[in-house]
């Protein structure tokens, strides 16, 4: 293989007895501009991130010197520990740890509700003859453009009348409902590409809406589930407004606790603790990215259809 290609290259290079040197790729002006632009974009993210990370490991004494870019002289986890377990948010002094577990408790029902709702709706719209499917999808899509802020107060009244206001269920339901337009669209478009013969065969074999969904369609949805999971975990975990509005006093997620911690601090501002708390809050979605990214699997329908 190598010998052959080497032979071909040398033959090609010596056409007509002349040797044509391989053209060298040069960095042109345009690509320099692009590189500078990209470097600036990266710097905008990475420089503040660097400051946050180094500050979280510094002692308060070093922070008092004001050299924000310097590395910690003595690396300490004191700020991290305080942020996790001791820092005060309003009246309670349990650290952001308390919020972490509430966020987890919000995350799972939110994920389950939103994905269950959207995948079944998408499946019905894509693969079954649903009357008014087109207009329904259009209306659903329009709902995606309604700003959350303008329906917030009616939703508070609604959850209160359902008796779930101030619980994780209120937050989970609101997440599921607000995510539904986008997720339904994603699922519908994914299921549109399921070969029609498969669904026809399944309808002839079983005919049961739920059974086809559970046994045929759901196992084929691996790819899209990962995409939706990453999307939803990030948005649910990073959400502040829904948690603040619907969590009441008892079900405030980590982001709300973090904000309370930073905002309500009195006297000396513990920058290392604040930075560590912010990082602790930001880490879980990152873990999800790196963890789930590996499971992007290709060719989930391989072998179902010839070719």
């Amino acid at each position: 293989m190598n010998a052959v290609s080497a032979y071909e290259t040398s033959a090609a290079a010596r056409i007509g007895g002349r040797v044509y040197p391989r053209r060298r790729r040069r960095i042109k002006g345009a690509s320099i501009a692009v590189l500078v632009f990209l470097a600036m974009c990266a710097a905008f993210i990475s420089i503040p991130l660097y400051v946050v990370i180094v500050t979280s490991f510094k002692t308060m004494d070093q922070i008092a010197l004001g050299e924000v870019f310097s590395l910690p002289t003595t690396w300490t986890f004191e700020g991290w520990w305080k942020a996790w377990a001791e820092v005060c948010s309003g009246m309670t002094c349990e650290g952001v740890r308390h919020g972490f577990f509430i966020s987890l408790a919000i995350l799972f029902p939110s994920l389950f509700l939103s994905i269950a709702l959207a995948s079944v709706t998408g499946y019905a719209l894509a693969l079954w003859n649903v009357r008014w499917a087109g207009p329904f999808l259009f209306v659903l899509f329009m709902c995606a453009f309604v700003p959350f802020q303008i329906i917030m107060i009616p939703l508070v009244a609604l959850t209160a009348s359902l008796g779930i206001y101030g619980t994780i269920w209120a937050i989970a339901v609101i997440h599921a409902v607000l995510a539904m337009p986008l997720l339904t669209l994603i699922f519908r478009n994914f299921y549109k590409d399921v070969p029609p013969e498969i669904i026809n065969a399944a309808i002839m074999d079983s005919g049961s809406f739920w059974r086809i969904f559970a046994e045929i369609i759901l196992p084929m949805s691996g790819n899209i589930m990962i995409v939706v999971l990453i999307l939803m975990i990030t948005s649910v975990w990073n959400d502040f407004l829904i948690g603040l509005t619907f969590g009441g006093m008892g079900a405030q997620p980590m982001t709300v606790i973090l904000a309370n911690t930073v905002i309500t601090e009195r006297g000396e501002v513990h920058y290392n603790v604040d930075m560590a708390a912010a990082l602790l809050t930001a880490i879980p979605p990152l873990v999800v990215y790196f963890g789930l990214g590996k499971f992007f699997v290709q060719g989930i329908t391989a072998g179902a259809i010839k070719g």
């Binding site: 070969p195 013969e197 498969i198 026809n200 065969a201 399944a202 309808i203 002839m204 074999d205 079983s206 005919g207 046994e215 045929i216 196992p219 084929m220 989930i300 329908t301 391989a302 072998g303 179902a304 259809i305 010839k306």
Partner: peptide, 21 residues
Amino acid sequence: SIPRDRGLAMVFQSYALYPTK
């Protein structure tokens, strides 16, 4: 009458096997 109750079985040109089963 819905397809499953018609007493038919069909073999598709593309086979249409369930890929995950």
